[in-house]
Computed example of a mutant assay.
Amino acid sequence: MPSGVHIQNVRGQLFEAAERVLLRDGPDALTSRAVTEEANCAKGVLHRHFDDFDAFLAALVLDRVRRIEGRGATLRAAAGTGSVADNLTEALQDLFGPVTVAIVALITFRDGLRARLREAGLTGIPLAAQGTAMIAAYLTAERESGRLASHADIDTLAPTLVGAGHLLFADRTSAPPEAAAVHRMVTTVIAGALRSPGP
């Protein structure tokens, strides 16, 4: 790209390029050169906006975290509507889309990125941790609405759903699991927590 050409929404374009490289070639192929070539811009563009490549990747993860937090509000608003199992199935399918699964693998792959994320206050496995918080908030709302039993253990249910969901979606080389498989897992996990309908 010629120097002096202004790029609109540089961060967004670089993030989208990184996601494309991740999905196509995997975390070990994600380099600053691969990202800038995919974005069709000079390599210096990335380094003008970020201190180094790990800082760029940390910003990419934080952008995904904000998206999960935004979806959490929508999921909480769904409490009391539809079926609990259907709502959770849709949330897990959305949470573990191909980009999220690839980014979780990337976090595991890069020590420097994990260090940057800890500096940013993200503990545990980022994205999975935020997904667990999202599911926990929804389950809490459903318990308050009376659709989950008052004894429902949200602190166990939420990470169980997210952990089992991640295992279903983790194989990046195969097609994502069918919705029916996700729904079956969700139904099994929450079976003991659902409030029995009245007579």
Rank of each mutant, 00 (worst) to 15 (best):
G82N: 12
I154R: 10
L168F: 04
S145F: 08
Y138M: 05
G97V: 01
S150D: 14
T173Q: 15
V186G: 11
R118S: 12
A133W: 08
L157M: 04
R114V: 00
R143L: 09
T156V: 12
R184V: 02
L167F: 04
A105T: 01
D94I: 05
A158W: 09
E178I: 01
R143M: 09
L88R: 10
A170S: 15
D86P: 02
F169K: 10
E144I: 03
D86W: 00
V99R: 05
P176E: 08
R114G: 08
V99A: 11
S145G: 15
I154C: 09
E144V: 01
D153C: 03
H166T: 07
A136C: 06
F109C: 07
A180H: 05
R184L: 07
L92I: 15
S150K: 12
R110P: 01
D111S: 11
L92E: 13
D86H: 01
S174E: 10
Y138L: 04
R184N: 05
A181K: 08
G124T: 06
G121V: 11
G131C: 11
L168P: 06
V104E: 01
L95W: 07
T188A: 14
G97L: 01
A170Y: 01
G121I: 12
L106S: 11
L148Y: 15
L167E: 09
L92D: 14
G124A: 04
H183Y: 06
V162G: 08
T173C: 11
A115Y: 13
L161R: 14
A133I: 10
T132F: 03
T81N: 08
I154E: 05
T188S: 07
D155P: 06
